[in-house]
Amino acid sequence: MNTLFPIFLKLEELHTLVVGGGNVGLEKLEAIFRNSPKAKVTLVSPEIREEIKALVAHYNLNLIQEKYHISHLEGIDLVTAGTDSKEVNRQVRDDCKTKKILVNIADTPDLCDFYLSSVVVKDDLKIAISTNGKSPTFAKRFREILEEIIPESLQETLNNLQAIRNKLKGDFQSKVQKLNEITKVMQE
């Protein structure tokens, strides 16, 4: 049973640390900035790919080209690590635990406080997909299926529902009941 609690974070209000400047670090940065283009991110690694360096021109990204040290956690709210060293990854996790910072260690579910999901984005609709760490590949394929079947006109529907919601009168329960009636057609 998947007991993970889904959550959407406002990364533009947090400071994220990425440890690792290789392929995994690039993948994490691309996921962060695709979902939160205004996120504040620091990346630390003794070696940093050129593709990562190029991201500095477009995003709020600070690069520190040196080995990870616990001092890099100062002022950090969230961490993801994906170095090619299991020892460094474990140290990052242990340091985060000491400082009570949530951490994701790439490809090591047992060391993670959270997993990065596969995400479907259609304008204002965002759907996160989790396999409880069992198969990121399946989550990616399922995301591709959902992207194909969700209609492009969905944003218009969301805008109309927001307009209706803003005009509804009454208490919270009556508003929810009315919106449930309106959206029931989606099941048919």
Rank of each mutant, 00 (worst) to 15 (best):
V88W: 02
V88A: 07
V88C: 02
V88Q: 03
N89E: 04
R90N: 10
Q91P: 00
R93N: 10
D94V: 13
D94K: 14
D95F: 02
D95M: 05
D95P: 03
K97G: 03
K100R: 15
K100D: 14
I101E: 06
I101M: 10
L102P: 00
V103H: 03
A106V: 14
D107H: 03
D107L: 03
D107E: 15
D107K: 02
P109W: 09
D110W: 10
L111Y: 11
C112K: 07
C112P: 03
C112L: 12
D113C: 06
D113N: 15
F114I: 04
F114H: 06
Y115I: 15
Y115D: 02
S117R: 02
S118A: 12
V120E: 04
V120H: 05
V121L: 05
K122F: 00
K122A: 01
K122S: 00
D123C: 01
D123F: 00
L125H: 08
K126M: 13
A128Q: 07
A128W: 12
A128R: 06
T131D: 03
G133H: 01
G133A: 04
K134D: 07
K134W: 08
K134C: 11
P136S: 12
P136Y: 11
T137P: 00
T137W: 09
F138M: 12
A139L: 06
A139M: 08
A139V: 09
A139E: 04
A139F: 11
K140Q: 12
K140M: 04
R141M: 12
F142T: 10
R143A: 03
E144L: 09
E144N: 11
I145M: 07
E147G: 07
E148T: 05
E148G: 15
I149W: 04
I149V: 15
I150T: 04
I150R: 05
I150Q: 05
P151I: 14
P151S: 06
S153M: 03
S153E: 15
S153N: 13
L154D: 15
Q155T: 14
Q155A: 13
Q155D: 09
E156K: 08
T157Q: 10
T157R: 12
T157D: 10
N160H: 11
L161R: 10
L161W: 13
A163K: 13
I164R: 01
I164W: 00
R165G: 11
R165L: 09
R165P: 01
N166V: 01
K167S: 13
L168C: 10
L168K: 14
G170A: 06
G170V: 13
G170M: 07
G170I: 10
G170E: 12
D171W: 02
D171F: 01
F172P: 00
Q173Y: 12
Q173N: 09
Q173H: 10
S174W: 06
K175H: 09
V176Y: 14
V176E: 13
Q177V: 10
K178R: 14
K178L: 09
K178D: 02
K178Y: 09
K178A: 11
K178F: 13
N180W: 07
E181M: 07
T183H: 03
T183R: 05
T183V: 07
